[in-house]
Design a protein around this nucleic acid. Structure first.
Lengths: 347, 347
DNA sequence: TCTCCGCGATGAAACGATTCATCGCGAGAC
DNA sequence: GTCTCGCGATGAATCGTTTCATCGCGGAGA
């Protein structure tokens, strides 16, 4: 692989001149410039990003940490970040924290020594994250939180308005005539799950609806957990006529549970999800859900990094993307006689 | 951030000694060793991976290039690769080629200057890839192809046995009594789509079944395309009683088309997919499909890189993972009177 | 003719690690 | 007492780039 030294030799100039050409410094107008360009062409030279990074104490890498790429919500965000990064000459390094704060910390600490231009974090559930992140900020790197934001964090973040989305979803159910509405939440150690629960509660409160204690089922963001909690709800003596699931994966589990109980959605029970995953169109019925624009989330985060690295956007960004309710087939007015439509089949 | 130099000062030794301690060289048994360890602890030292990489001409990064992370087949593979990489002290850099050979080439060329330990490629459809990859091999890096393999490639690869999987899927339909079986393929510029088509054809041939020309519909690997091709098939004067879709996304589109035509799966038409995406359990009916173990695909590729970097596994690996048919609800015997069950509703 | 100025080009230093030839020293052999 | 040997530790060189103080030269002004 060719180096600046070789280019300098071939072009008959000094290595400093080669570097100046590479960086488009205006000081190189002379004939030397062309000779350098020719030599670069001739040798197929590609600058070593390692050498450059060591000297400049900064790379063109943006590190993005997500809890788990196999959670279908994240690929969209990753893709958005990668697109914007690539377009601006940055590269995205992806890390899975496995929703494990120790692994997250390891990644943050170790990746720091690669001197990335920026760090985009979707924090693990219990992550405070502020300790390791301080070192980045001190070193002049950019840190942007996405989706979930540690309560103490004062820097840049991009997240959708979980509370607003949950509020809209719940209001939709109320407007259809539902009164007995339950929710299956995400882990309440995470800020996004908490905000969605609050949106649900506020909507209920605004319509003076009571929420029985057992109508709030804390869970985690996957299908199996949603399935299990749904069975609990459906077997209640007085079961809900609608369920707000804190994300689509949970909702998929609920759909399965509804079928198992011999019930039908939306005739017997309405269901709303959150995320608008691609697959929410593949289910039967298709799932009414809240679109939170995963791609945009990632893209805006990457854009924040890019702008900040370029020196623009000195003011911290607190971006709150407005989610949108997507009404599909899984919601309908409640059955005429509450709870009498059909008893839940015992399993 | 502390450096070897500072550690050396604090511990009262030379920088060479510090390096020797860091690398666990046996030559540092003396009291100096402990003083160095203390200093490292005290200053919270973390070695600069940039400095190390520049000197050793190799990093702990494994670059993985996939066509598009939002295709739900890939996150599993990425996750598998990341897990194995992390466990062995390597880090995964993810790149989306966007199924674009130019972008793929850019990534390959530029990432080379970061001196990654290895390169894992799921090539874009038209990728030959051999040109840029040569530079890696010359530099002693490891290259592993995954899922699809360029025809000329002689090095390591990990892929599932697409042909075998397609054969099993088709045989399953034949065994159920189907005779008029169509397939919707992926883009036949990619090796995986070709192999699946061949498996389909061989199964048909082995049962002496003819395949009308219009029963082979070339498509691309997404839902919209599958939907469109399925409509074409369903509107044929003599429509198939079963469809083998070259992947689950296509199958999802087929399911939608079946519903639109007022038909039912599996009563009127059986359907088999390929990939066993999580979502293939969320559809109604659940989708009979071929599991190709995406996680294992990625994990084995990363393992191949790790082993080769460590100097083990000198022989090239050609790993062919056996896929498994997952029989679910979307397949059943054909309707009693062929094609007479119900006419496809005109749209 | 001399001085000064500014444009282009120069090349040594620096970034943070690893490597390797070398050195000092104490012990053992004669 | 001298020589040799080997163990531990040393520190200069190196990787590929950028940066910046400096230099040479030619033209303009006095």
């Amino acid at each position: 692989m060719a180096t600046v030294k070789q280019i300098a030799e071939v072009a008959g100039v000094s290595i400093g001149t080669v570097s100046n050409v590479l960086n488009n410094l205006p000081t190189v107008r002379g004939p030397a410039r062309q000779r350098v360009l020719d030599a670069i062409e001739e040798l197929g030279y590609q600058p070593s990003l390692l050498g450059r990074a060591l000297r400049k104490d900064k790379t063109n890498m943006i590190v993005m940490i997500v809890p788990d790429i196999t959670n279908p919500f994240f690929p969209g965000a990753v893709r958005g970040a990668e697109d914007i990064a690539f377009q601006n000459g940055f590269r995205l390094v992806l890390c899975n924290s496995d929703n494990n704060i120790a692994k997250e910390a390891t990644y943050i600490r170790e990746m720091h020594t690669y001197r990335p231009a920026g760090l985009i974090i979707v924090p693990a559930d219990l992550s405070k994250g502020t300790d390791e992140v301080k070192a980045y900020l001190k070193a002049g790197a950019v840190v942007v939180y996405v989706d979930r934001v540690p309560t103490k964090w004062k820097g840049d973040y991009v997240t959708s308005d979980h509370e607003k989305g949950a509020y809209a979803a719940t209001k939709h159910l109320i407007n259809l005539g539902h009164r007995q509405i339950a929710t299956i939440t995400g882990p309440l150690t995470g800020t996004s799950a908490v905000a969605r629960l609050e949106g649900f509660q506020k909507a209920m409160q605004s319509s003076k609806l009571k929420i029985p204690k057992e109508f709030i089922q804390e869970s985690v963001f996957n299908k199996a957990a949603g399935h299990e909690r749904a069975l609990t709800l459906l077997r209640l003596p007085k079961r809900p006529t609608a369920i707000f699931a804190a994300n689509d994966l949970i909702a998929f589990g609920v759909l399965a549970a509804i079928r198992e109980c011999g019930l039908h959605c939306p005739e017997d029970l309405s269901l709303v999800g959150f995320d608008n995953l691609d697959d929410s169109d593949a289910t039967l019925p298709t799932l009414t859900t809240v679109d939170q624009f995963a791609y945009q989330l990632g893209a805006q985060a990457a854009q924040a990094v890019v702008d900040r690295v370029r020196g623009n956007g000195a003011d911290t960004r607190h971006i709150l993307l407005a989610p949108e309710l997507r009404i599909k087939e899984s919601t309908a007015p409640p059955p005429a006689k509450l709870n009498s439509a059909k008893p839940a089949r015992k399993l």
